[in-house]
């Protein structure tokens, strides 16, 4: 019972912000090292210098952009959890769309709609991957003998402890 005793929500924003920053910083380093290498003047030494300069100047910016996205996303997600009193994939899809819209608010309504759509679809795809993974991981809990019913939980009428759906189903 301990693993869900702690509320993840307000702390998760900081968590996501940091995670997104490191993801952006690492990805940005790789991207900008290649880009800096290609854009530098000829000569291996100069190219390496150029690559290093590009990483130094650009990768933190990419990380920061990612962190803004992640933090805002998580904040909206948590707000939605608080308002709706429910946690389901809709929260993250909505907050992805809202994040996209908010971050392009200075570019006008059309840009907001476009990036809201992109954010929503992207998050829906991520959710879909998550759903797929849970489905495939849930596959192994199917009854071994499909003709045999799994036992009913014993809380129905009498009640001993029923610990964990997956482990306690003995299929006779």
């Amino acid at each position: 019972m301990e693993e869900y005793a702690r509320e993840p929500c307000p702390w998760r924003i900081v968590d996501d912000c940091g995670g997104a920053f490191s993801m952006g910083a690492i990805g940005g380093s790789v991207f900008h090292s290649i880009k800096g290498y290609r854009n530098a003047p000829a000569g291996h030494y100069r190219r390496l210098i150029g690559s290093l300069t590009a990483v130094k100047t650009r990768a933190p910016i990419t990380g920061g952009n990612f962190a803004v996205w992640g933090g805002l996303f998580s904040a909206i997600d948590c707000s939605l959890v608080y308002v709706r009193k429910k946690e389901d994939p809709w929260n993250s899809i909505t907050s992805g769309a809202a994040t996209g819209a908010i971050l392009s608010v200075r570019n006008g309504v059309a840009a907001m709609a476009g990036s809201a759509l992109i954010g929503g679809v992207l998050l829906a795809l991520i959710e879909g991957i998550g759903i797929m993974f849970t489905r495939f991981s849930a596959e192994q809990f199917k009854p071994v003998d499909p003709t045999q019913m799994p036992q009913d939980p014993q809380q129905l009428p009498p009640k001993p402890l029923f610990g964990g759906e997956q482990t306690s189903n003995s299929y006779q």
Binding site: P8, W11, D15, E87, N91, I131, T134, Q166
Partner: peptide, 20 residues
């Protein structure tokens, strides 16, 4: 409020279920 299993990243939106 309702929620599913907590993942490592603090997400709780997937319920544990089995279809058979």
């Amino acid at each position: 409020k309702g929620y599913g299993e907590t993942t490592r990243r603090g997400r709780r939106r997937f319920t544990s279920h089995s279809e058979y």
